[in-house]
Design a protein around this nucleic acid. Sequence first.
DNA 1: AAGAGGCCCTGATAGC
DNA 2: TGCTATCAGGGCCTCT
Length: 287
Amino acid sequence: MPELPEVEIVRQSLEKKIKHKRVKKVIVRNRNLRFKLSSNFRSYIQNQKIVKVGRFSKYLIIYLSDGHYCLIHLGMSGTIHIVNNNLSKVITNTSFYSSQSLPKKHNHIELLFDKFKVIYNDPRRFGFFQIIKSSLELKKRFNHLGPEPFDPKYNLNYVCEYFKGKNKNIKSFLLDQKFVSGIGNIYASEILFLSKIYPFKMVNTLNKKECHKIILNSKKILTKAILYGGSSIRDFKNLHGTRGKFQNEFKVYQREGKKCKNLGCFNLIKKKIFSNRSTFFCEFCQK
DNA sequence: AAGAGGCCCTGATAGC
DNA sequence: TGCTATCAGGGCCTCT
């Protein structure tokens, strides 16, 4: 489901809800996630106080009072719900589901607090929970990831150097978390449309000006998406509450066959499947 | 060693 | 109605 903006929205609402609160009990219903949940997973979280909820790229980091960390990745379909304990009613919505459509199936992990519980639901099970035991280990865990788009390290020098001698298109690089981390399939298309760059242009043919536009627009699109509360795509039934609004701002994503939104352009948005992911673009505006 | 492709898994939707 | 095929916001692993 989520790219960096959606994960950030989840982080904000989750932290608001659980910071300084103690986990009373942990229920594991299914440990077969992306990575199998370790057998002692519960013991690391039970009775811990939540110090804060952080995020790096598309990963949530729960800081536990004894210095350990609980790393969460939502994969493609992971969602987090907060449900009131006695009333069994959704009181905070961190996942774009409404109380009416709260799924019973695929609730794999539950963290029980005094008055509410946090439920992890994930039909496809591409997401995961992991215990990280030290800040050093946490750093190592993210070692393979490139800078976030907001990081000053994601600059013209870095990008130009990185692209030297690389024989791959720009869309693939925006999705490559080793190059820049946090961008996914929606925002990659949107960033390239805004930059007026053809998604399948090889990076070794990009000039400095184009690299500069990609850097600026990566920051711009993700910042705006966070401001809009993320994107809620695929229309769930009975949605309400904290549903994101950025899907209304899409210029190309899921707009195949529709008119280009650039002023004066009457071309229709195209969709092309490349390495199993769809890419949306305007042939006329993106060169 | 960079780059392409397959695979993990379930659910929604389209087409017959 | 009920089948089958295709597609989904991600990332890891293997092969060449």
